[in-house]
Design a protein around this nucleic acid. Structure first.
Lengths: 338, 338
DNA sequence: CTGAAAGCGCTTACAG
DNA sequence: CTGAAAGCGCTTACAG
């Protein structure tokens, strides 16, 4: 592999290593002629700069780490795609911090900034992986994606969760549903709490009491939706609609309902949240609140790279628009149903 | 951030930097007492080693790069999960090389080994991103996941694609289907060609001719399955079963069939390939060939890390077992159907 | 078991 | 516009 270094190029081109370095990085401090000479020598020698050396010298790794519970989750996958695109376009690489939701691993990945393996962090978690009791001044460049750490001063990109959940609720209300269940995300998460709050607000505005037996806590996975559906349908009094805080939970929910002999949407309407690509393909296709996942990721990356290069972000909260996508998994309430 | 270096720790502990380095890395060349002293000093100073410096010195980045078409794809997501787990357990980090199938980007990410940003590559592509006309001796540590580059000497981890596709075909044949369509992956890919070959073998063994109008080429995405279904159902002579080379295509296929008014499985049986988590949750649940995706990723990582540390792999081809998972999307052929 | 010192391959003031 | 030289913060023979 590339055993040839900047010294060899300097010798070959008959200039100093300083000049080679400038020419290679196009710093503009080198005459056109010299630059050409250097480039030719580098080309001829098949030279590739050793980034490890440049990294040490500049104290920058050129990496960002994205701390995320599960890469294999559809929504997370989209977020990462957006992050990667922007990072690459600006010469950065993405380190994968897959945590499975473990606070320990979140902290381990966050440590990569201290050990200089990463220049900044995109954090898709509601937990702050650093001690901020002494303020946030010592923190590395850090951006929150979707989730909110409840630490003031950390930039964040997300949809307006509260409003989005209220919009979902209104959709079900407009369809005549009053017996509405929700399957939440982790209630430690401010974003999940905001969604629940949006649901409650929507219900209150319509003058309808929330049945607390129909508030089931999940964690965004299909299994959680499945379990929730079984629980709900075993109740004496059953909901006519279920609003899940993720599409994957909605898929699990629909699956369980079907197995229990309920028809979606005629017996029970089901809504999701996220608008993942596969939500179009379920049977029936899923009504959902679509989030611009790739753009959220892209915006996170843009803000983080700005932070790394020393910019102050324009604003701490960037809200991207959500969209109600009505498909076949919700239907107007049949008043005469069993 | 950590402005304190090994020199500060050395001064604090009253030893040399060499000793600090040994103590910190537990090289065993330091007395227990000295080690304790050093560790205490490091602890007290809140010292975190600068990996950039260690990297330059040892000429190892501690990173591997995974070159993959689409992180957001369910199957790819599982593979990456397996890779990440093993890499982390051995102290390596994973750089994300999302290519969207672009040969250019594949090459760019592959260059990260030349620039020392990565110590090795897991390549989920059928294209070799290096010039191997002069042999494979100059190649960096490299492992092929699932895909096959057709370059001899590159370790590879996959299922037996040919056999797996034949098993799928046999399942449909056992259900009485003879009019079987396939939706393939990229035919540039040896793995997709092997699956098609397995299908043809299965058909031939049953003495049934393959109708070439029913061989549709896709690229693993739901849209491809959708398009294939529309094409197939517009034919004068229609298949009674469709075998898709990915679950996502099968989902798209089922969706289109439903929209066209066909019932799955009673009018048309549909099979997938991969066994992604969501395949359980489709309606009807998807019959598929399950691949041990996480284990494939894990095995890739294990072999690659071995290669990086100088081991020769036991064998160049590691085949992991696939499994036919029969669910509701396939059914015995109704002889009397329209 | 411990230390003095070289060096990994770049970048960057500084001087000319 | 160009060069000589210091130095980023570690690790590692080498010597004792």
């Amino acid at each position: 592999m590339s055993r040839v270094g900047i010294k060899d190029i300097a010798a070959e081109a008959g200039v100093s290593t300083a000049t080679v370095s400038h020419a290679l990085r196009n710093s503009g401090r080198v005459s056109e002629l010299t630059r050409k000479k250097v480039l030719a020598a580098a080309q001829k020698a098949g030279y590739t700069p050793n980034r490890l050396a440049a990294n040490l010298r500049t104290s920058r790794s050129g990496n960002i780490v994205v701390i995320i519970p599960d890469v294999a989750d559809s929504f997370n996958g989209q977020i990462i795609t957006g992050i990667e695109q922007v990072a690459r376009s600006k010469g950065y690489s993405v380190l994968l911090g897959n945590t499975g939701g473990s606070p320990n691993r979140e902290r381990e990945f966050a440590e990569m900034t201290r050990s200089r393996q990463a220049d900044g962090i995109i954090l898709m978690s509601h937990r702050m992986p650093f001690d901020v009791s002494g303020g946030i001044d010592g923190l590395p460049p850090l951006v929150n994606g979707c989730e909110n750490t409840d630490v003031a001063g950390i930039p964040r990109v997300a949809v307006r969760d509260r409003r989005a959940a209220r919009d979902a609720t209104r959709h079900l209300l407009e369809y005549g549903h009053e017996k509405i269940a929700v399957v939440t995300g982790d209630m430690e998460s401010a974003s999940s709490r905001a969604r629940l709050d949006g649901f409650r607000t929507g219900m209150r505005d319509a003058g309808i009491d929330v049945n607390e037996d129909w508030v089931i806590h999940g964690n965004y996975q299909p299994e959680d939706g499945e379990r929730a559906a079984r629980r709900l349908m075993s109740l004496r009094s059953r909901p006519t609609a279920v609003f899940c805080f993720s599409d994957e939970m909605a898929m699990g929910c629909m699956h369980a309902l079907r197995e229990l002999g309920f028809d979606v949407p005629h017996d029970v309407s089901v809504m999701g949240f996220d608008g993942v690509p596969l939500s179009r393909y379920t049977a029936p296709p899923l009504t959902t609140i679509a989030q611009p996942a790739e753009e959220i990721g892209a915006a996170c990356a843009r803000i983080l790279l700005g932070l790394i290069e020393g910019e102050k972000p324009d604003c701490l909260e960037t809200f991207l628009p959500h969209e109600l996508v009505v498909r076949g998994s919700t239907a107007p309430l049949k008043r005469d149903r069993v």
